[in-house]
Design a protein around this nucleic acid. Structure first.
Lengths: 224, 224
DNA sequence: ACGCGGTTAATACGAGTGTATTAATGATAC
DNA sequence: GTATCATTAATACACTCGTATTAACCGCGT
């Protein structure tokens, strides 16, 4: 059934039907139940593949986890950095517009989470959960993706709001990231009995979030 | 070695030396490694107890998890509600001061996380991780604690910022909770190579966070 | 027609899981 | 001093986990 793969090496085949099904099933299950609550058998069963499929296509369960993240996160990182570059280019040597920088950071994430090819906020939930997860294997990968983003955006934010210290920028940035994840995660949980489910389209979501983020970055520290 | 327990029932003893050691060890391990990565054997070994100790004192692993949370979270919930009541009483029938309401919400959590009896942000980390965790057993307990808090505070915030809709208040609140957790979690992770670790005392932390939160609640929605 | 290589299927293995069971312990009440 | 009872210790059990191993499968080039 070797349809697409040409590469000869045993288990690093870049694409195949079952390989994709495994990634899809794993992503969905991870988002639903959390990483640790999903077994190899759960995934292969959901993907209609045999037990050995994961070992064959990914070498080990660990690597499949990373692959699941990489498929969504690498493009996300790229989009963020490109958007920031565009903002920087537009600003020339002048001051960077704070709101545009924050939008470059958060729009790609919200779009990926809410309007990706997979319905619902599958990867958004997954991201939210995994940023908190102490899984050392995954933490290394995520850090490798997040680090350059944080670094570039922190620098840009320092240019946009020069009166803040680097530590302060770093801190506020993480606050916003945490807030984004929490709110994404909450989107598909049912609200506390009485409140209607908050149904925002992605565009409105982005605009609101950026507005809040901007307000938070402009807030002055208390005097003490 | 029955020192304190009098109650006759086999396994609902309310306090004992090993029972406390189990809770302490479990809390620490959970915070370090995450709930799912800690086994009964890990905990009993760390607590210097025998394997059966958890079953004996808590009935089952599940219940120990809930007990770990309850020990910290029940007082936290109480403090929050009391602080809010004080704010409401001070305001009488007049408008509620936004900043005071937000402080009532977040000061107890930060204090618990940063100045609790256990050094470091042990429970803070644990909380942050577990809010995201889909563990259904725990989710039920956490929800039972969080629900009345959210309900009371949402009402208060509506009084404090009457121009916002209930959904909007709910949403901003969750954003802040997520931000708090992320920033707490980040406190004891080493910063990204270059930045000095952000070392804030709890009081400064609270004041800054409340300042940001206030700014975020005062932000107006974008026109669209 | 034939085997060859990439893929899938089926099973086995050792390690680790939570809990139940049963025996030992040791302090306290009578 | 001894019976009692809460606690601790030690072991057993049934189960699930990820991975390795081996055999079947099958389209394709020759």
């Amino acid at each position: 059934m070797a349809r697409k793969t040409k590469a000869g090496n045993g288990q690093a085949g870049r694409s195949s039907a079952t390989r994709e099904r495994l990634l899809d099933a794993a992503e969905r299950l991870f988002a639903q139940r959390g990483l640790d609550a999903v077994s190899v058998r759960d995934i292969t069963r959901a993907a209609g593949a045999s037990l050995g499929a994961i070992t064959y296509h990914f070498g080990a369960m660990r690597k499949l986890v990373v692959a699941v993240f990489d498929r969504r996160m690498a493009p996300l990182t790229r989009q963020r950095l490109e958007a920031l570059s565009a903002v920087e280019k537009a600003a020339g040597t002048g001051p960077l517009p704070l709101e545009a920088v924050l939008e470059a950071m958060f729009r790609p994430a919200v779009m990926e989470a809410m309007t990706g090819e997979r319905a619902g906020v599958v990867f958004g939930k997954l991201m939210a959960r995994s940023m908190m997860d102490p899984n050392p294997n995954l933490e290394k990968y995520i850090h490798s993706q997040v680090e350059p983003v944080i670094r570039r955006f922190d620098a840009a934010l320092l240019r946009a709001v020069p009166e803040l210290t680097p530590e302060d920028v770093f801190w506020r940035m993480h606050l916003l990231v945490g807030g984004l994840h929490q709110s994404l995660l909450m989107m598909d949980r049912k609200p506390p009995a009485g409140l209607p489910r908050l149904r925002l389209d992605a565009e409105t979501y982005v605009r609101r979030f950026v507005a809040f983020a901007t307000a938070m970055f402009r807030a002055r520290l208390p005097k003490a």
